[in-house]
């Protein structure tokens, strides 16, 4: 922690106020949710490690299965729930990742705005359809 913070958190000394870290940080956004994007990206990443290993292994195990075998497998409660959780983690992770890419490479304001909205809505739509399909197979 820097010195000014320890001794004068509100930085009331007019002689140093304008050169302080606090002065430079004011107006640049909340310090409370700034790391939220970063954190959720990590939480979903950690969740996706076992979930994707499970997905690849399961798909391998069912590579030979016909439609009926797959429908029965996907319809098992544990499989349907795992698939739904996987889709949630995946599309949340994807939404955050694609957002960063748009923010980094798209600089025209209107295109950027449209792209960011599109990323969120497409991810949400895919999540809704995928989770519905998983649950449908379980409750059919």
């Amino acid at each position: 922690m820097s010195d000014w913070k320890r001794h004068d958190p509100l930085n009331r000394n007019p002689a140093t106020a304008r050169s302080s870290a606090l002065y430079r940080a004011i107006g640049l956004g909340s310090a409370k949710s700034g790391a939220h994007h970063w954190w959720v990206q990590r939480v979903t990443a950690v969740a996706l490690v076992p979930l994707l290993v499970w997905l690849v292994a399961s798909l391998l195990a069912h590579a030979r299965g016909d439609h009926q075998v797959l429908a029965l497998w996907l319809g098992q409660p544990a499989v349907a729930v795992t698939m739904a959780v996987l889709l949630m983690a995946l599309f949340w992770h994807m939404k955050l990742g694609l957002r960063v890419i748009v923010e980094d490479y798209v600089h025209a304001d209107r295109v950027k705005f449209a792209a960011l909205i599109a990323v969120d809505l497409v991810c949400l739509a895919l999540l809704a359809i995928g989770v519905f399909a998983s649950l449908y197979l379980a409750f059919r």
Binding site: L90, G97, I129, A133, L137
Partner: peptide, 24 residues
């Protein structure tokens, strides 16, 4: 980053595949 974008396209297939299993 590139694999991330490519995998995003793959996720569309995953959902399409699930829907196809439902539809049969």
């Amino acid at each position: 980053r590139m694999t991330g974008v490519f995998l995003s396209l793959g996720s569309v297939l995953l959902v399409a595949w699930l829907v196809a299993v439902v539809d049969g």
